[in-house]
Each structure stands twice: as C-alpha cells, then as structure tokens.
Simulated assay, not measured.
Amino acid sequence: MTESRPHTLFSFGTLLDKRVQTALFGRAVPSSAASLAGYTTRPLPITDPSVISTSGLDVHLTLERKIGAAVEGAVLHLTDQDLAAADAYEVDDYVRRRVLLSSGESAWAYLDAKPLRAAARIVIAGDSIAYGRCDPQGGWAARLAAAHIAGNEAEHRLFNLAIPGSTLTGVGEQTPPLLAPRLPDTLLVAAGINDSALPLADAGTPRDWSADIADNLTALAAMALTHNARLVVMGPIWLDEARTRDYEGLRFTEERALSLRESIRAWCAESYVDFLDMWEPLRGRPELLVDGLHPNSEGHRVLYRYLDSISR
C-alpha cells in the first residue's frame, strides 16, 4: 500500500469552514494561520449545485494579484485523499497551483483557472515569435500589453524580455537577473521552438530532448516561485514545414514541433503549471506565416485573440 503524503493547502474561504471540511474530509483537519502577500480577493459567482449545497454560498472568493496587498487565511494539512477531495470540490473556475506564503514556505492554493485574468504585472520571456518579429505592430505580445495595461493603467504592467533565437535554456539563463526590478506576478514563457530545431548537418541524427525540456521548465518553475510569480507556458504555434526545412542553417519540422508541444503539455500537467496550447489558431493557414515559421501581422492578431480567449 502506498503511504499517503502530507500536503499543505492555503485557504482563505469556504475550505476553512469546519462544516465544509467535515463534508469533504470526514473531519475537521489540522490548520495553522498563514498569509499570502501580493494578492487580494474578488467575488466569484458559483453555479454548481453540489458546491453551493456543501458551502451554503453561491458566491465564493478568488485570488487576484495586487502589490502591497495580502490575504489572511490558514494552511490546511491534508493527505493525498484530502487533497483529491478538495480538487473535486473546487469548480472549474479554479486550478491548484504552487504559491509562496509570507513565511517563505510554499503551499498549494486554488487560483483563477484563466491565468492572465488575475495577473497585474506580467513578464514575457521567449523567442522571436514572442518578440514580434515580422510584425511592425509588435506581435501578439504588444497587443496583449495594450489590452492588459488599458484594463488598469495604475497597476497593470507588461514587460517583454523576449530575445530572437532564444531556447528554453537561454530563457533560463537570461531571465533571472531581470525579474526582481519588475516585480512580476506572472511569468509567461513563450519559447521552445528553437529547442526543436536541428542543424542541417545533424538533421538525420535522432536525439531524445524531452528530458532537457523538462529540466529547463523545472528550473523556470523554481525561479518563478522565488518571486511568487505564476509560471504560464505557451506551446509552439503551427509551422509550415514546406517552407522551414532550411531556415538559416536549421531544420524545423512539424513532427518535432508536435513532439515539443506534447513534451511541454505533459510536463505542465504533471507539475500543475498552466499550459496554453497555441497550435490550432494557425494550423493549416500558411498565408498567416511570413516564412513558414514567423507569423505576419494578421497571424499575430489571430494568436492574440486566441490567447486572450483562453487565458483572460
């Protein structure tokens, strides 16, 4: 029999209610006071009848980022079974993610399922596509910045640190010293397609690079957590292989891009990190790519609209 592992879950709402705990866990669970800095709360209407029946409320609270604010609550000490019961109780508007408590300890917490909707200060780290190459208007990232800042001119910020040619390894090396001055609450990583490329001289040499992807993402997750920033990872966009076979001495193929997509998706699922699948918006639409790899202005507009719909 597998021994149950201990878990700590930060709660500030209905999970602190002993009646809810008894209904979910069969008992009141051990807890200790805790605080979560850099967050505030906002109301969230609930429509799930079973959740309303358990909590007695049709409006719960959800977390939102805000510099200088703090949410007071408690850490619940749970078993594997308890944590699974809590996951089942939370509606689809929430996802379980790692946060850094004011004490410096990490814990689980239920955050907004749309990762950019609750963000205030976003840092983008990525490659030439995130940089906005081939689009005079700055690409999907510039469109996201305009909409995000317009939503709250006083508190919303977006910093684009993308560098053309970057790999996930490069992002991990270049980003850490740039984060602290920007006070990020969300780190949006949009890189990886360069990791999948092969130099033409080695194009016939197979290599399993999924472990490298996982190692790089694990390091980025740890880096984000030290800033209490939520890591959000964008998957690769569709590419037109017929036009990218020989691109600046590199070979980009759909097979390897899809393998990258699945490696990132699997790591995010296992690690409870947000994955934004960007493959479909441009799939089969070569007219939206300048060179088979980089979107044109209309392609970036399509990507931004899709990104906005799934993350905000």
Rank of each mutant, 00 (worst) to 15 (best):
F10S: 12
S11I: 06
S11L: 03
F12A: 02
L15N: 06
K18F: 09
V20R: 08
V29N: 07
V29Y: 01
A34S: 11
G38K: 00
D48L: 13
L57E: 13
L57C: 13
L63C: 06
H77F: 11
Q81A: 15
L83G: 12
E90F: 05
R97N: 05
W108A: 06
L116P: 00
L116C: 00
A125F: 02
P136K: 10
Q137V: 10
G138I: 05
A142L: 07
L144N: 01
A145P: 05
N160Y: 04
T169W: 03
E173Q: 15
T175K: 00
T175I: 13
R182V: 03
L187M: 03
L188N: 02
A190Q: 03
A190I: 06
A190W: 10
G192I: 13
G192R: 04
D195P: 15
L200T: 12
D202Y: 12
P206T: 13
R207Q: 12
T218Y: 08
M223G: 11
L225A: 04
W238P: 14
W238E: 08
R243T: 07
Y247I: 14
G249A: 08
E254R: 11
R256E: 14
A257G: 15
S259I: 11
E262P: 08
E262S: 15
I264P: 07
R265S: 13
C268N: 00
S271N: 10
S271A: 12
L276M: 02
D277L: 01
R285N: 07
Y306E: 02
I310T: 01
S311L: 00
